[in-house]
Design a protein around this nucleic acid. Structure first.
Lengths: 186, 186
DNA sequence: TGACTTAGCTAACAAACTTAGGTATTGTCG
DNA sequence: CGACAATACCTAAGTTTGTTAGCTAAGTCA
């Protein structure tokens, strides 16, 4: 028999993430974070729509521009940054190339590799879009003052690295599960 | 002819979000935020997998528990919180009901409405899962100290409200576009 | 009562991916 | 050098994750 008054077990243990010994704040924070994420994604879909792109295509597009450097970025590197399969990048990139927004050229240093770069037309489209993005982004982060924004921006790199560690840790744990069947509720 | 040395237009204008008059930090922040979001989502998919659920089902599942209160939550309210269609909630909920994790009962106060609630079996599964979540969540937010965590957690509500405003603003602007064809690059 | 709106369901479809399997190229090691 | 594994990309087929359209039942309100 489960005690209906039992406190559910904590979903975090670091004392920095507990408030009065409870993970309630953390749980609220996670749900809030996910809700905010949905909102940001729906807005990004609209940005893409203005350019005639799907949300995924738009994300691919701005990722290429952000990472292209002087020479361009390879398909596999884009896939790594977006955490999607290379095959998906190949397929969606083809559409961007067809639209004249991205160009592909062979990597002179590696015959297997292809370098992706945003075309001048693509750059122009993104510059035009900024007119729309500006007021939306201003609204989106209205809550943050200068110090708060800088703090969070400065933490992003660390958060991504810790996220990658957590992801690996999770992969290990879930592979462990496979062999022990701890969660077999069938 | 486009001047290759021209600075791209700003994607934000609030001075709080600009660093030395540039939106470079903001752009990095957005890309970092999206990358972090992908990592969190991939981890959540794994949590779901341990319970035999897809990522979307798991998200639905924990959202029902989070919002059910004493009486349960309606299909349409869940859909609103997750920003998905009611039809999708109906379909995925059916699977959770079949697995015995969620129960549906008619809303005594409204014959059209159905109330969703996590069953004791479902609660037990989520409690067992906490053992795995704890170390992963600890790793995921290693970068944040107590003050930073509390600050960000305290800002979530405001961020969601501003996100909703931005979403409406965006819907308005994009509907405006439809009639003016400002972004017709065809 | 009649006209409209809302809640939920089903079915058909579209979008956003993945996996499997192929080819060409490169790196490595006896 | 030659064999062989690994890497980069591509294509095709399938899966997951949603959506829209249209229906029924129930509530709202003049």
């Amino acid at each position: 028999m489960t005690d209906p008054n039992a406190t559910p077990p904590l979903t975090v243990s670091r004392h920095e993430l507990l408030v009065a010994g409870s993970d309630q704040t953390f749980r609220e924070f996670i749900h809030g974070f996910l809700a905010f994420t949905s909102l940001v994604e729906s807005i990004r879909d609209k940005f893409g729509e203005l350019l005639g792109l799907s949300g995924a295509q738009y994300e691919l597009f701005i990722t290429i521009r952000h990472r292209q450097g002087d020479e361009g970025i390879s398909v596999s590197h884009v896939a790594q940054h977006l955490y999607v399969s290379g095959a998906f990048v190949t397929m969606e990139t083809r559409k961007l190339v067809k639209l004249g927004l991205v160009e592909k050229r062979p990597n002179p240093e590696d015959g297997r590799s292809v370098l992706l770069r945003v075309t001048p037309k693509g750059d122009q489209m993104l510059e035009d879009l900024a007119v729309v993005q500006r007021p939306i982004n201003d609204t989106l982060f209205e809550c943050l003052d200068s110090d708060e924004f800088r703090l969070i921006a400065a933490r992003m790199g660390c958060l991504i690295r810790s996220g990658q560690r957590a992801q690996k840790q999770m992969a290990y744990l879930s592979q462990l599960e496979e062999t022990t069947d701890l969660f077999d509720y069938s």
